[in-house]
Every structure is written in structure tokens, then in C-alpha cells.
Design a protein around this nucleic acid. Structure first.
Lengths: 356, 356
DNA sequence: TGTATTTTTGTGTACGTACACAAAAATAGG
DNA sequence: CCTATTTTTGTGTACGTACACAAAAATACA
């Protein structure tokens, strides 16, 4: 096992000084063709990997990164993403790094437009976006493209934009997986209730629609015929949901399984529990605090996790390494779809472990 | 947000030099009570976190760590653990670190004894053990205790030893989870085939036995009565297995589900496939290459993953941070039990991502 | 050819920590 | 009180990288 190669070693091998190697590595110019060639020849031979922690240590300039996502509520999905972002920042503690967070109301397109307009004018080195409204996001991205500011998506990709990368679960496959799980829990040829929030003013393809498509495609490919029934639900006007659910479960008192395609599964679980409706199998989404509680109580049977902390962590880490070390970036990054049950939920605290 | 506090800052606040702070931090002695008190007072006030990458950079001494596990085969469980260990080493690239790997035949107690005797005499700073034979492992650990050499277990804890820590899945809960999954796939009150390798010469509790117990406890708590049938199988004498399996599935041609409690699930899957026996649901263990292949082909329905890379990674990382930075250690560390299906297996390449 | 200007190159310092070594202070022994 | 010894303290250097600045070489122009 050979020793790690340093800038000084490259300099010696190329017959130049460390300063020249540094100039070649960072494309700072002011290098004679001869010297550049000599250094590049050595670089081709050896596997030089800069020590990124030392780099960060000696880095003089400061970076500013802006984060914009839907508003954050404690214990919910978007908080986990921000958690991951903060952890990545801590992993590069040496860096002089400023982070500015601007959130918007994901159910109010005007709130989003206002925040995005503000961001479009801000000074920054990079942007991380949790997209919700398709067109508004693309409008912001266009402005960033003009200004040559790199951006990365978390949670979903936004078709039409040119991000440096995105970190997201495969929403279509998520729907397929939910279909597989619910059909393994309920009798053949039975009814399935499906809850899928539709966002007002956002007609375009979003994660929920992709999930639904994955779900329906799986169901239709099965030999057994299931009857999929939509459960009315509104995130914007929660006061109506009690009525919606009550009406649905009265009409379909024999329904054996329910799938919730957004993170509000706990809402249905509580309704069923409060009304002493048991024996309804549930497959839900996201490890929000109330969902995890419902899983632990046995109200939810399978919960799908989308690694939000990890998404945030990787997005930030990727952005930093791109900005500072010009590290090449993978554009498409799909995270795990974790299947959680009462039995294995207790061991899922990965993020607390990784970076503590 | 306040700036990061450095040794120099502590020195200034305590009215001493950086050298004295260093001596207090590392317990190097030669500090007057007055100076020690002053420094400790400041340390109590501020939240000093040493920059571990810089520490490693300026560390003079070299460390030697010995690893012992069962032999490594490509694409199998123990290779993944070693993979994780190597990645942790790379994360501390600054460190002058020597690793020596000594493996033994996990089906041959004499091989284990021989290797462990050798290890007992070796010079080292720390030891990482993948235990198989209970008593032999404890004998080695006693010697390590005498010599004051810290050791960490991966894969399982070994009752009776005093490790610095262990990284393992909860084998009992793993069995419970497998029971939950197989019963969700097969009709009520049916037969279940269970394959569980018993290791010759190792009568004591090991992971497989714990899994079996978790499995049986879950089954017996169910309202539905399942008939659990043991499938004969021998890892040591694989030439007999064809006969064993053939006899079993002839006797029980109507069996709807099989659970494999070791990592050889693919063996049964292949047997069933070769003999055109379909409609047998399978729940198996470990993301070995052949198991993953069988899952992707649809021969296995659920595969349980035990995060072997992560176990190895964390064991090594924990040991290094303990040795060098005296970082306090959590003794009990249970990893995730990942549930894999055809649908979500494609996204499980976490380790490649984390540290690339 | 000589001087001014530009380009190229090498050297030195900072970052935060560990540790060696020298300097200073405290203590012991006569 | 003086010297020898021990204890305590401060200073300087190394680690690998980024970058500022000075030195050297090359080029331009009269």
C-alpha cells in the first residue's frame, strides 16, 4: 500500500514548485505551457486526491448558499430535510459558510411566487430548492441559469429545469411498492381506499400524481381485480375532512385496506381508531412523528420512508463539493424507499448515528 | 451564530498558553493545579469541539488495528462488513493506521482456535471481532482484557465478554419480522417451512437461535395456528442438501411459505425454480449477491438486510474515535432491519453513495 | 543594448492541532 | 543563599492545502 500523494510530491515529480501545481489544479492561469504539460503528465500518472478537510481549512473565501422549501413544521417531512442539510454543514465545519433559509406556503402559490421573486435577486453562490409549484420553480430556475448560479432539487425533480442534480425518491416506484404491500395484506378482489391530496393551482405532474400512476399500473397488472376508491381529503381545509372520512367509511364499511399517498396517514388512522373501526389495513407514507406513533400503535401496517435527512445531507454535501472542489456530480439521485413496520421502526434512527 | 472556539481561544480565556490547554485536554500531566483549574473552568463554559480532521493531520503516532472475522467470500455478508471497515479507514485518511486482517473458517472450531491463539499474542492497539464460536471468542476477550486492549464486536454481541461496543442487528426482532412478513403472504393456518443452519460444535446461543426464537414467539402469539416445519440443511456438507430439499418438498408439496434464517436463501430459491415449484412465498436474509438476484427474479418475496457495511463502518469509526479522541462510546448499537422487495431493492446502494 | 512591462515561478504564511524542546519557575539539598 | 534538580510553562514546527506576494524569467519597445 503506497503512501498518499501530496501536492509537494507532484511538484517534485514534475520538476516545478508547489505553487505551480496549485495553479494547474485550480486553473488559476499564469502557467507556461511547458510547466502545465509537465504537471498534467504527472497528474495522469498518479491518483491525486486532495485532502478536502485540509482544503477547507485553508480556504479563504466564504460561500453563501440559499435554501428554499415549503414551510417547516416540527416532526414533519421538510424538517427532516433541513436537518440533513444542517448536518452536512457541520461535516464541513472548517468552511466559512453562510446559509439563508427562505420557506413558502406550499398550499399558496402567491406565497411561493413572492419568495421566489425575492430569491431571484439575492446574492448567493448556490441554491437548494424543495420544489412544489412546477411553473414557478422553472421560472426561478431560468433566472438562476442566466446568472450562472447552480441549484439542486430535493424531494422531487422539476421537469424542464436544468439542475446540477436532484435528490428524490422514485415516486412512481413508491406507488408501485405501496400497491404491492397493500395487496399482500388484504383479500383478493377487494376494495382499496386511496387518499391523494390534490393541490389547488398546481395542475402539473407532481410526486403524488406519479405515485398514483405507479399504484394504478401495478393494480391493473394483477390477475386479481381490485376496486380502487378515492377518499376525499383536503389539506388546505382540514375542517371538512372529518365529514369526508365519515361519509366514505359509512358508504364503504367493508373496506379492508387504505393507502395514503401523502404524509397525512396518521389523520386517517386516528379517525379509524376514534370510531372503533379496526381491521382496516393501512399503508402510509413518510416517517413523520404522528405517522411513526400510529405505526407503533399498530394502526398503520406499513410505512414507507423516503430518507428525507439523507436527501438534504447529500444535496448540501454535493453542492459544497461541487463549489469548492469542482467534484463531478451525478445528476439523478434516487434515495431508498424504506419499508417500516412495528417490528423494525425502532432501529431507524440512522441519521442520529451517522454524524454524531 | 458564534464562531468556533479553538485551543488558542481557550488559552486566552484561561490566561495560559496553548500548550497548557493541550496538556489538560490530553491529560499529559505536568500542569499546576492552578492552571488546570483555570483551563477546566473555561472548558466548562465553552463548548469546545476539536477539529478531528486537523487532529488526525497533526497526530504523530501510528495505530495498529486487528480485524478477525469468518472467511470472506465475494458478494457475501462478511465481505460487506470488511468493505465498511475499509471505508471508515478512508474517512480518516490523515491517520497513520495499519490494519491486519485474520480470518477463520466459521465451520471449523479448530481454525478459529488457531487464529485466536495467534491474535492473543499480537501487538496491537485495538481489535474488531466478528464472533462465531462463543467460548473461543470469550477466551480471546479475556486475554484482551488482561492486556487492556479494547475490542468491538460486529454482527453479534458475545454474551459474557466486555466489549467496548457491539454493532449488530437485533436477531430476535429479525426473527419476529420474518414471521410477520411470511404470515402476511400466506393463508391463515397453513404450514411454514423454516431453514436454520445449526453449527456443529457450537451449542451456545447464536444469532440463528435468537432469530428462531423471535420467529416462534411471534407465531405462537397469533390467533391463527401455523404449522412450522424444519427444513434439513447443512452448510458444512452441501452435497446432501439437494436430497434434503427434495425429500422435504415431496413430503410437503402443499407448503405455501418458506423462511430462511441464514443467508443461503438463494439455495432454496434455486431448488424451487429448477424443480418448477412456484407459488412458494419466501422470506430470506441478507443482501448477498445471489439473494439479491433471486429477489430480482421474483423467487424471493422479502429479503431482510442487516446493513453489514454500516456495521463495519461504524465499528471502525467508533474504535478510531475512541482511541484517538477518547470519544465516549455507546455500548449497544443495533442496526436497521431493512425490508427489501423487487420494487425497492434497486435503490439500496447506500454505502456506495455515502462515502464516495 | 538597456529599460519597462508582463508573464511565470517560487517562497512564505495561515488554518487548528499535536507534540518536541527550550525557557522559566518552583522545589530540594547542602 | 546558591546550585542542582524537578516541575511547569511557553514557543516553535509539522501536517497538507490555499493563496498572497516577491523574485525571476520572458517579452516588448525604444
Amino acid at each position: 500500500m503506497q503512501k498518499k500523494i501530496r501536492i509537494k510530491d507532484i511538484a517534485r515529480l514534475a520538476g516545478v514548485s508547489a505553487g505551480t501545481v496549485d495553479r494547474v489544479l485550480h486553473n488559476r492561469g499564469n502557467v507556461s505551457p511547458k510547466a502545465r504539460q509537465a504537471v498534467e503528465a504527472v497528474l495522469k500518472e498518479v491518483d491525486y486526491k486532495p485532502n478536502i478537510h485540509v482544503s477547507a481549512l485553508s480556504l479563504k473565501r466564504t460561500y453563501k448558499i440559499v435554501i428554499t422549501t415549503p414551510n417547516i413544521s416540527p416532526g414533519e417531512y421538510w424538517e427532516s430535510i433541513h436537518h440533513g442539510i444542517r448536518h452536512a454543514k457541520e461535516a464541513y465545519a472548517n468552511l466559512k459558510l453562510t446559509i439563508e433559509v427562505l420557506t413558502y406556503n406550499q398550499y399558496d402559490i402567491f406565497s411561493c411566487m413572492k419568495v421566489f421573486r425575492q430569491i431571484a435577486e439575492m446574492e448567493m453562490d448556490a441554491l437548494i430548492i424543495g420544489p412544489t409549484f412546477h411553473n414557478e420553480t422553472n421560472a426561478l430556475c431560468e433566472k438562476m441559469d442566466e446568472r450562472n448560479i447552480p441549484y439542486i432539487f430535493v424531494d422531487s425533480n422539476n421537469e424542464g429545469a436544468c439542475p446540477l442534480a436532484f435528490f428524490s425518491s422514485d415516486h412512481y416506484m413508491c406507488g408501485t411498492l405501496m400497491a404491492k404491500l397493500i395487496t399482500s395484506l388484504i383479500p383478493a378482489n377487494s376494495k382499496i381506499g386511496i387518499l391523494q391530496a390534490v393541490r389547488v393551482g398546481n395542475q402539473s405532474a407532481n410526486s403524488t400524481i406519479l405515485r398514483k400512476r405507479g399504484f394504478m399500473d401495478y393494480i391493473s397488472k394483477q390477475e386479481r381485480a381490485y376496486q380502487v376508491l378515492r377518499i376525499p381529503f383536503s389539506v388546505e381545509e382540514p375542517e371538512n375532512n372529518e365529514t369526508y372520512l365519515s361519509r366514505f367509511f359509512t358508504d364503504h364499511h367493508d373496506i379492508p385496506g387504505v393507502v395514503v399517498m401523502n404524509s397525512r396517514g396518521n389523520y386517517v388512522a386516528s379517525y379509524l381508531d376514534n370510531n372503533h373501526i379496526h381491521d382496516v389495513k393501512m399503508v402510509c407514507l413518510d416517517l413523520t412523528a404522528p405517522n411513526v406513533e400510529a405505526l407503533k400503535k399498530g394502526q398503520i401496517d406499513f410505512l414507507i420512508g423516503q430518507e428525507p435527512e439523507y436527501q438534504g445531507f447529500r444535496a448540501m454535501k454535493t453542492m459544497l463539493e461541487y463549489l469548492i472542489f469542482k467534484k463531478p456530480v451525478n445528476r439523478e439521485n434516487y434515495v431508498q424507499l424504506d419499508i417500516l413496520t412495528l417490528e423494525n421502526i425502532g432501529f431507524y434512527k440512522r441519521f442520529n448515528n451517522i454524524l454524531s
